[in-house]
């Protein structure tokens, strides 16, 4: 019995090392692909010039492509991917439901409405981000408030309240779409709702990065307690954990990072649902491993998909469409493989 067990315990450390190497490779590749030709050597040299203050005169377009265009976009893609995957894993743990994704409490529909409203009011890009962030927080806050005043199972009422509030916000977005100017506002809203990182500037990356890191740290620190909660509320209580407070803190942090992510990228589905499943397949059902794995894998996955969005066609392809196109076949394959093994 023990012999069998040891044979089946995978080497998680090795897997983590491989995952980190893969993520670093993704980052390196992302710097060197794009429509303006910059070789990998040039990328490294541009960074070397910046870091060591070397005396190399760069052609401005090359320099700007690496530093002003690709660096912010890569940072933004990594942060957004990491945020959505971590939030997804946290929500799935809190609701003990593998079908939950970060928009279950309405973060995406709230952000979508906020952005649509800002576009409708002809406000600038900064306001679109601010409105989207506020929309997401308000929507989840409303769902949480509704669930507090309902009777019955806490998780069920929260999920139902989330569905209720988010459908309300989706309806309001649809209304804005019907009244928006069809020549410029409507296409802009549609584009925003499909998600894109094309506009990412260093300011966006810093704004989202700070909030996302601030939200991921508590989740990371609480990951052991999340394990306990999966055993059930009574078990958690018997081990001295207040399940309501834990759930509130984790949901609040997951909402914060989701809101920060979608407010700069637009709505990107799929990652928050599927990356946690990938993580579980590779690292088992232990949140102590799932959370760090989701951060790295989510970031690397979105980075790869964004590279496709940049290079696939002559125009930018909305990333929200691509995540599903890339993710669905991989996920289907993994599901089938997993099914065969068990």
């Amino acid at each position: 019995m023990t012999e069998q067990k040891t044979r089946h315990v995978p080497n998680y450390k090795l897997r983590f090392v491989l995952l980190i190497i893969a993520a670093l490779l993704c980052i390196l590749i992302s710097f060197s692909v794009g429509r303006f030709p910059v070789s990998l050597a040039d990328v490294i040299m541009v960074f070397a010039t910046e870091i060591f203050k070397l005396d190399i005169a760069w052609d401005f377009a090359t320099w700007s492509t690496v530093i002003n265009i690709r660096l912010p976009r890569i940072l933004a893609a990594f942060f957004v991917g990491a945020a959505l995957a971590t939030a997804g894993a946290a929500y799935q743990g809190m609701f003990q439901n593998p079908l939950v994704s970060p928009d279950i409490l309405g973060a995406s529909s709230g952000a979508g409405f906020g952005a649509a409203l800002a576009i409708f009011m002809n406000l600038g890009p900064v306001w679109i981000t601010a409105f989207a962030f506020a929309g997401a927080v308000i929507c989840v806050g409303a769902a949480y408030a509704v669930s507090r005043f309902t009777k019955g199972s806490a998780t069920l009422s929260m999920v139902l309240a989330g569905i209720l509030v988010s459908s309300l916000f989706t309806a309001m977005t649809s209304f804005l779409k019907t009244v928006a100017d069809t020549e410029d506002q409507l296409p802009e809203i549609t584009y925003w709702l499909m998600g894109s990182l094309a506009g990412a500037e260093i300011g966006d990356a810093i704004f989202a990065g700070v909030l996302i890191i601030a939200g991921i740290i508590p989740i990371f620190l609480l990951r052991w307690r999340m394990n306990v909660l999966t055993l059930g509320e009574d078990e958690a209580k018997s081990m001295g954990i207040n399940p309501h407070r834990l759930r509130f803190v984790v949901v609040a942090c997951a909402t914060l990072i989701t809101a920060a992510a979608v407010s700069i990228s637009g709505i990107i589905g799929w990652i928050g649902l599927v990356i946690p499943h990938f993580c579980r397949m590779i690292f088992g059902c232990d949140y102590r491993r799932i959370i760090p794995a989701a951060v790295i894998m989510g970031g690397a996955f979105l980075l790869l998909v964004d590279d496709l969005a940049r290079c696939m066609a002559t125009v930018e392809v909305p990333i929200g469409i691509l995540t599903a196109f890339v993710g669905a076949p991989i996920f289907a394959y993994l599901l089938m493989m997993g099914g065969r093994r068990s």
Partner: peptide, 21 residues
């Protein structure tokens, strides 16, 4: 600019990299 993909007057999305090119 490359051939239009989207039919709206807002045109298609590119990045600064394309403009340099």
């Amino acid at each position: 600019a490359p051939e239009a993909v989207v039919g709206s007057g807002l045109g298609d999305q590119y990045t600064m990299e394309d403009i340099f090119q």
